[in-house]
Design a protein around this nucleic acid. Structure first.
Lengths: 249, 249
DNA sequence: CGCTCTGTTGACCGCCCTCAAAACCCGTGG
DNA sequence: CCACGGGTTTTGAGGGCGGTCAACAGAGCG
């Protein structure tokens, strides 16, 4: 996934002629657009942008992880999504950011101006298609997450979350999947629209049912993948792989 | 809103030269793309497409209203959105429809092949921008709906729904807004992730609180707009005008 | 070692779902 | 015009799930 950027960098020098903001590269995909963007390094807990900021850039997480959230008028926090390597943030068009983005682990992020992305999409059909598809994928993810929140109980929500994490962050197929929970329980709770206590209870319940095991508080091992799946609306969540339902806005 | 189509039709004949699928028109916006699409007439309760159908067209509702829904594995139905005149259905890119669309009142609908839309977007930057924006708006709507479902109780959800309908379907500012509830209580319930009984109770509670009145079962008058708003996350729902969070997929 | 932040467990209560029955609406046919 | 019948809506009673409050247990760190 990071390789595409590297190839673009290797190809570019020979084909550099026109001078605009940066070199003329072969941009066949959305990720190619980030090839020349400098990598910014963030420590844990640093803010990429705040809720209400004017939206100027599109971000791509290269390493580490981030969290998007907003504060509701009743003071509660809504976590709108997590972003892991390869994920985009702020693809959706809007004048202002509706959410803040903040790293939950040391991270490397590239960003490009929205105007550039817009121009590149207009110059290259495959970039435009890629963009359309990326947004559509996020739409489907948000839709799936919506079902999860609207229809599933606490256990089902947590199960869905764990499966999404496993799907997203694990080397697949090496026995029982180990999932590192980078985020706090409160992050999970605010994401799943549950209280911290309920998240905790759900995890221990899944543990007692021998569906998962807990090593420490931040390492989950999925024992019974099938049982976990049956707690979820897998038909829809698998249709929309990855998580990060709201790289948008 | 319907006028843009008419203007396009009036302009077209003089500038017709290139022959493709249809005439070369000035397409400055997404709605212009539908100018030459024939209007299809549907009776109440007819299906536009089924869940699982291959996705081939993008739809635009010209008159009447429709409802998108899917059946979950536990047999329950999830209503994913309503579409009213001016709304698009199926903008989001995906090989299959994840939902069925069905009219809830006699309706007139235009549709164009996805390939055409894609081509026109590639030919005209403003169409591409319009498309991007339309999807982004739906994304924001879905996000707002997500908050509604995840965080609000029954009264707040119904209040949000009524306000969205009022915003969407009423001539504004002529006194207390009258909202016609075209859909059944069960449609509202499946949309708001509530039981029919709870929707009914919420409505009578709002009535008892003198926030709305009910004339018959399908006509609501908003008395106390402010009180209704305070039950909702207006900051987010107003940011995403209209409803129909899932013209997508 | 003790402090603080995080996570877990328990008790209690309120909201919404479920089940059940009554009321209402509306088209049909007598 | 009215009676009937099916679908829809409303209202009521009871129970379960998750929120809230509170106390405790662990983890990380100075």
């Amino acid at each position: 996934m990071l390789n595409s950027a590297n190839t673009a960098e290797r190809i570019a020098p020979s084909s550099t002629l026109r001078v605009q903001t940066c070199q003329q590269v072969a941009r066949r995909s959305l990720s190619d657009c980030f090839a020349y963007a400098p990598v910014r390094h963030f420590g844990r807990g640093e803010q990429l942008f705040a809720e209400g900021d004017a939206k100027s850039h599109v971000y791509r997480v290269e390493a580490g992880s981030a969290l998007m959230s907003c504060i509701l008028k009743d003071g509660r926090r809504q976590v709108v999504g997590f972003a892991f390597p390869g994920d985009y943030i702020s693809l959706v068009s809007a004048p202002l950011h509706a959410f803040e983005a903040r790293t939950i682990a040391a991270a490397q992020v590239r960003c490009i101006p929205i105007s550039s992305m817009r121009r590149w999409a207009s110059e290259d059909l495959s970039v435009a298609d890629d963009l359309h598809e990326a947004i559509s994928k996020e739409f489907a993810q948000l839709q799936a997450h919506f079902l999860t929140i609207g229809r599933l109980g606490a256990n089902g929500r947590v199960a869905t979350f764990l499966l999404a994490l496993a799907e997203r962050c694990c080397d697949k197929d090496l026995g029982p999947a180990e999932v590192q929970l980078t985020m706090l329980r409160s992050d999970i709770a605010d994401f799943l629209c549950l209280s911290v206590e309920t998240v905790s209870r759900a995890l221990t319940e899944l543990k007692d049912a021998k569906i998962i095991t807990l090593k420490g508080t931040h390492l989950v091992t999925v024992i019974d993948h099938k049982a976990l799946t049956q707690l979820t609306y897998a038909e829809y969540t698998s249709r929309a792989k990855n998580m990060c339902p709201a790289a948008g806005t």
